[in-house]
Amino acid sequence: MAKPLVATGFFTGCFGCHMSFLDIDERIIDLVELIEFDKSPINDIKEFTRPVDIGIIEGGVSNEENVEFLREFRKHCKILIAIGSCAITGGVPSMRNTVPLKECLEEAYLNGPTIQNDGIIPNDPDIPTMLDKVYPCHEVVKIDYFLPGCPPSADTLWAALVALLQGKEVALPYELVKYD
């Protein structure tokens, strides 16, 4: 039987959840036995090559491109897991949610104390348009599982993934569920 396919992706965040994933250390060898990666920054596959079984996403949704990629993940993944504070609540980037976008950008690019000469708010066509707020993933697409943490520990990610691969319910022990 073919190995289950897994894809991972990241949106607005710090990539810390992926780093934590790499913290599974030597278990990565077991992992390779268990699964095959499709689209993921870990193997640098940029596009989905086929439908996958499990999608793992980190980061909140702060711009149009995030929305597009997240939708793509939803379309291709049977099970979609949001991992980490940013994916689940918007996280640290969502601290801007109580400030109007215009004010944020003006502070960053026009009025901030480190701005020299005349600043400009970037408007290059290649830069994705920002959303008014940073949204958690579950407000953009349907999410099947949440693994909180900043980041979720390697043990948390490993335990959840193994359970899912074995078709079991994800029931994590107390120490493995943290919001920070």
Partner: peptide, 26 residues
């Protein structure tokens, strides 16, 4: 549908578009 986002994408992009002079793509 079994899922509809609680917010309207066009509305969520309106301010960003107005600031940068771009149009929404999605």
């Amino acid at each position: 549908d079994d899922f509809v986002p609680p917010f309207d994408l066009k509305a969520a992009l309106a301010e960003g578009c107005a600031i940068t002079g771009k149009q929404p793509v999605l």
